[in-house]
Design a binder for these strands. Sequence first.
DNA 1: GAGTACATGTAATTAGTTACATGATTGA
DNA 2: TCAATCATGTAACTAATTACATGTACTC
Lengths: 181, 181
Amino acid sequence: MRNLKYAILGLVNREPKTGYDIKKAFDDRALTNFWHAEHSQIYPELAKLVKEGMLNCSTVIQGQKMEKKLYSITPAGKKEFETWLEDDVPIERTYKDIFRLRTFFSDELDREKYLKLLYSQREQHIVRRDYLSGILDTVFPNIPAIGTADLGDYMVLDGAVSRETDYVKWLERCIEIFEKQ
Amino acid sequence: MRNLKYAILGLVNREPKTGYDIKKAFDDRALTNFWHAEHSQIYPELAKLVKEGMLNCSTVIQGQKMEKKLYSITPAGKKEFETWLEDDVPIERTYKDIFRLRTFFSDELDREKYLKLLYSQREQHIVRRDYLSGILDTVFPNIPAIGTADLGDYMVLDGAVSRETDYVKWLERCIEIFEKQ
DNA sequence: GAGTACATGTAATTAGTTACATGATTGA
DNA sequence: TCAATCATGTAACTAATTACATGTACTC
């Protein structure tokens, strides 16, 4: 499916970037919630995309002698990216989640031990929800205009806050079941 | 992290199973929403778990001569599984989602084309939500008792319905933004 | 007899993580 | 001068998917 390919093409399409820039983008608040890659996966993919004619690479000198490679998108790369972007694909069968896997088997665990896990997970998702929600409120007090990159940013952040909020509610329903008895 | 290992140990711990049974379990309504593996991943993992002393394997004859391998958990396997089960791990940084990735880059797409995608995704998530919700209502009219495997089943199904419901709501907020202008 | 489900494997490839490895720049 | 950040790569391994490959059992 080459999803990393398209994530990279999309980022470089916004503006030319180095591998390091791309890594930073994947670590960033909005994007890291639904996509991520390590630099060890990014650098080889960049080389591959140059070889495939999707990206151009130019070397820039930073300071005295540090070379950095700035990648920009080619017309072929842009076309490839846009074709991917409008592709209507089936939703994914599985959204893997290790805590849900534990929950599925939770009958094998003492009530107290499982409750401890539930509270810990809840706390962590609350922290993330509040963190993301804070960004949403401060960075985007208003909904950005259609056609801006900010709107994409806004929508995925809104989705992430919503997802975390729902996750916390689900955990609280689980907690309620175990606290009641 | 060997998550597949623990998913298999958990399933076999419930009762002895063949590789085929495990594959079916991964395809089933509740489990497939948050975990999945193909048989090409399952069979080698089963062999590995036998070698590691986590599972026992016995050959059973079905019909005239068809051999099937029935796996059961060893005491060591049970201990390993239970240790994993009570492990309090950090929540995952990234829940990968290709549609959210497309949304992040949606400024590069015509309003009509992106709206088409939004409606398609919405329809698909509604179908899944209603499917899962139907199972929840018919199979679990009441919340199962604590300590039963049914309760784990119920909780993850409830979580899946909730997740799909939230996803639909998020898509509808995105649609509203694009329909308004 | 035909089709579907049961049953088990391997091969080849792609995707992703962790570890190894190196060096320059910037700001306190 | 020290630490954090910038910057780029490879190696080894683990995880996952798709394709190849084969044969039996059951039900209509």
